[in-house]
Design a protein around this nucleic acid. Structure first.
Lengths: 205, 205, 205, 205
DNA sequence: AATGAATGAGCATTCATTCAT
DNA sequence: CATGAATGAATGCTCATTCAT
């Protein structure tokens, strides 16, 4: 077996396991068992466990950037409409994640790998939050303020993802940079983005 | 010191540490050092380390639900417009997260305690993704397809959060339930939600 | 409740628990739960956990010595035969253990209190040893060398207890004192004690 | 060093320590210090501390059974007398224990690792019991009812071991099975086994 | 290069004992 | 005397990493 193949084998097995059980619950033992190689071999190709994980992420990111660039060549910007461009971007991104759900899970849920009981709790919490959002959209549909053809699962997921990520962005990640930004201002901004799409009936035939 | 206070003290210290360093890198020793209590005391109030984390999440979720209910009393549904309702919901949720950025960090599971180098890598990846999205929005603004008053940070965060969360929802979390749903269909749905808000000029005065 | 009663209560509960689960697996918590007293109260009457155990053993030994002395008054040595004396001594001792099987268990099986799996193993080993001895006695009965009315359970227990205890006495406890004593010599001695009783037919009508 | 040797080394050191200080007082640290190996090495060969102990017991029991079988080939059952057979069995068993006094101590479970003070107390109790028995035998010798050549240490050990083991067997171990058996019946049985051997003068020349 | 036995720092958890109320 | 919250020393076990073969 060639060196490159062996490295790829380790990465593939690690990817599966990191996705299934998360970083912490995945042990070197698990990786070598699945790859059917010796313990020391891992360290011939990777500095340590972190290195495997980072390589995985880097590969993934590179792949994404390449896809973005490649797909762009297919677009003729002088012709395509903004809506088509947005749709294209979203589709390309989704396609990318759809093709490798394991890496999708790793990148978007790095927190996985806590103990059983905690995972259960987190999953319940996530589901509960989405359910609440979904119920409110359905209420909007009943009162004829929201298009009945809208997919509630989709809207809940989009809204939930947007709001939570934005909260995290302003209040944690870039907290210092935006410490003067008021909650009202952010809420207003998000509302303006969503309101037209959510409350303009007839677009979801 | 009353028993309830002591339990609250442990939770408070644990919350800070879990937020700062994540679950795995936070040790019982860190908690007791910060709380200035004895090792055994932790186990008088909590079954184990997991129990602390779960209690934190549960408290947080309860708190959120209570706030949602309480704020709803302030609304007169017969009068309020759908947009106002949406804005209200978003503001309430943001407010909640803004008030406790530590729990925000824990719940949204960034920095769950991976090693230094991995955290760095993940953060870079996240920032890079947002930057790409931001650049595209700016491009839209230059071509006068997107309102120039729009906050690119906000839109990037909203769009990024929405798309990534939706990818995770359909391709990982609820993969089996939606295995027949096509990527195009999902992309179309997301586009319909965002397009009206993003490309209707004049709403961001 | 009077002080003496309270001390007796603690001893009684401790005795039960030490017998059921052994010294190590019995925790102070178990004792105070069963006695329905406070944790600190135990230390008002006993210096520490050891003190409880030792008090239990001492009480037991005192009791036994008193019974031995008391019963002796009932005997008229000028009349009683040696056999009757032996029978009397054995009966008295057995009676004593029979009256308090919990303390019997504590005194005779101090080793109890290991982990589940070990206890299981030890018990199996003990049963296996007795079974082997029993089978050999039955073989003796089939070849008409041993009285058929003899109770094989009893003989196995007596022989097993005698040989194992003697081994422990000469090879562990008093090893130094008897380092010159040969195994053959000891085996010969034990044989002489048992042979007449085991192979004289007709005594077990 | 070969793997089997290393496992044997751990077992040997553990055996010594378990015999010296008992199961509970023997720590993994003690074992690795004596074996001069690393902490983790222990867990490469044994699942946990219990596993070491159980392996020790199992090895010992297997060894005993094998010796019993091996020695039996040496016997010609058509020729050997019952007394010779009994002597042979006892000698074989004693020989086995004599060869490994450490395992003897472990199996017969004295000194299972209680605290210093308790061990002392238990040992005193044991010695006292044997002394009482010994004195009574000497009294029998003075009254010429017991052969003067009899070894009082031996008889005390045999009688003590037999009676205590039998008490434990009927009143604790197999309590439910024999709840109808009277103390008198048991005492009578034991007496019949011992009386002929103890009171027939001239056999101990 | 490949192997896998050996390593040992690191950590959660237990539980007898204390002491302020 | 009684209480029970607080204490902290003690310990078994894990698992990423190393290195001699």
């Amino acid at each position: 077996m060639k060196a490159e193949d062996r490295k790829a084998l380790i990465l593939e097995c690690a990817k599966q396991l990191f996705s299934e059980h998360g970083y912490h619950k995945t042990q070197i033992s698990d990786i070598i068992n699945r790859a059917k190689i010796a313990r020391g071999t891992v360290y011939q190709y990777f500095k340590n466990k972190d290195d495997i994980f980072i390589t995985l992420l880097e590969n993934y990111f590179d792949k994404w950037q390449k896809i973005l660039v490649r797909r762009d060549y297919e677009l003729d910007f002088s012709v395509i409409s903004p809506v088509d461009f947005l749709r294209h971007r979203i589709r390309t991104t989704l396609q990318f994640f759809a093709e490798d759900h394991e890496l999708c899970n790793i990148v978007l849920r790095m927190g996985v790998g806590l103990h059983e009981s905690i995972e259960t709790m987190i999953n319940r919490l996530e589901r509960d939050i989405l359910t609440i959002v979904k119920n409110e959209i359905r209420f909007g549909q009943k009162t004829h303020n929201v298009d009945e053809n809208m997919d509630t699962d989709l809207v809940a997921s989009v809204l939930g993802g947007a709001v939570l990520k934005t909260a995290h962005f302003y209040f944690v990640q870039e907290r210092d940079r935006f410490k003067d930004k008021s909650v009202d201002e952010i809420a207003e901004g998000i509302t303006r983005i969503f309101a037209p799409g959510l409350f303009s009936k007839g677009t979801w035939s």
